[in-house]
Computed example of a mutant assay.
Amino acid sequence: MAKRPDAAQTAFGPMVIAAAEQSYPEAQRIVRDELAVRFLPPGMRFGVRLCKWSFIRYGLIRAAEKKAPGMWGSVLCRKRYADDKVAEAIAAGIDQVVILGAGLDTRAYRLGVPAGAAAFEVDLPVNIAYKRERLRDIFGAEPERVALVPVDFQTDDLATALENSGLRFERPLMVVWEAVTQYLTEDGFRSTLRALSRAAVGSQLIFTYVRADFLAGTNFYGAEALYQDMKLKYDVWHFGIAPEDVGGLLGEYGWAEREQVGSREYMTRFIEPSRRDLSVSELERFVHAEKR
């Protein structure tokens, strides 16, 4: 398989966090994803299974927190938020789920296919190739009703790629765009929104973004080491948004902001009910929008 670029390598970290979460008692889990560990490479699967011992689990969390305080909790909460929004959309009758930058995401197999929805997983070709291998190993074949769509958001025609894979823009969509936008340029972000502007009225869109002041280096939110890695060393984070600019940006492409959540909402909705001692970072936020 081709060498994975730096941006593609980042697909593994969040799934390690989701997989390690399954070692907690069910009542304390923020995310419930029994498939997560099965999508990881063998070495990572072994490491995750060691998390059944609490001292290893806590050591892993402490190591992550040194680089980016609150990001472990933030990843868990954003995954739970996305799970809840996808489940709500499917329950409301939306039967097409588009996952942009799918990486090792398992929602199509946990939430979409079991409910009879069609899913479209979009990612870089190298990530799609790896996902295809894992699906064949896990399920014996690529599950029906899931289309794997290789796309470079910076250069490819997203709308055409989705239509060629069977998506019908005239019917409402549920679009999940988690932990991707910071890897794009502003042009790449806008071209994706332009493609999604064709979505039918009533379609739902959720996406995360990193705050613009973090990428500008004016506010590190306690995560200067993360800034050094993602912005300076590897130069893979390019685009950020200020919270107050989200509504206007979406409006240019026919979307209306319905909700924007971050650390405060995550703490109230997910962390406090779990009775876990976890902090949540301020530097990433989730947006829920609806097609007007």
Rank of each mutant, 00 (worst) to 15 (best):
F214T: 04
E178C: 05
R171D: 09
S203P: 05
F207A: 02
D235T: 07
Y183V: 01
Y227H: 14
L184F: 01
F214K: 04
L158V: 10
S165M: 00
N219A: 13
V210C: 11
S203T: 09
F214Q: 02
F239E: 01
F220Q: 12
Y234K: 15
T218R: 15
I206Y: 07
I206R: 03
G222T: 04
V201N: 08
P172V: 11
A200C: 13
I206D: 06
D213H: 11
R168K: 14
F207Q: 01
L193W: 04
V236C: 05
A159D: 01
L158D: 09
F169H: 01
R190M: 15
S191R: 12
Y209E: 14
S191T: 13
I241R: 07
T218A: 14
Y183L: 04
Y234L: 15
L162M: 05
F239K: 03
Q228I: 14
A161M: 01
L226Y: 04
A161N: 02
A242S: 11
R190W: 02
N219G: 05
L215S: 06
P243G: 10
D157Q: 04
V176A: 03
T181M: 06
A159Y: 02
Y221K: 12
R171E: 13
V180G: 09
R168G: 04
Q228H: 06
S165E: 00
W177K: 00
Q154S: 06
A199Y: 11
F220V: 14
L162N: 00
L249F: 05
T160Y: 00
G248W: 10
Q228G: 11
E178V: 13
E178P: 08
T192G: 13
V180Y: 02
F153L: 01
D157R: 00
L196F: 10
Y234E: 15
Q182S: 12
A159P: 07
F189P: 08
T208K: 05
V236G: 01
A212C: 12
T181G: 09
Q154G: 03
V246A: 05
F189Y: 10
A225W: 10
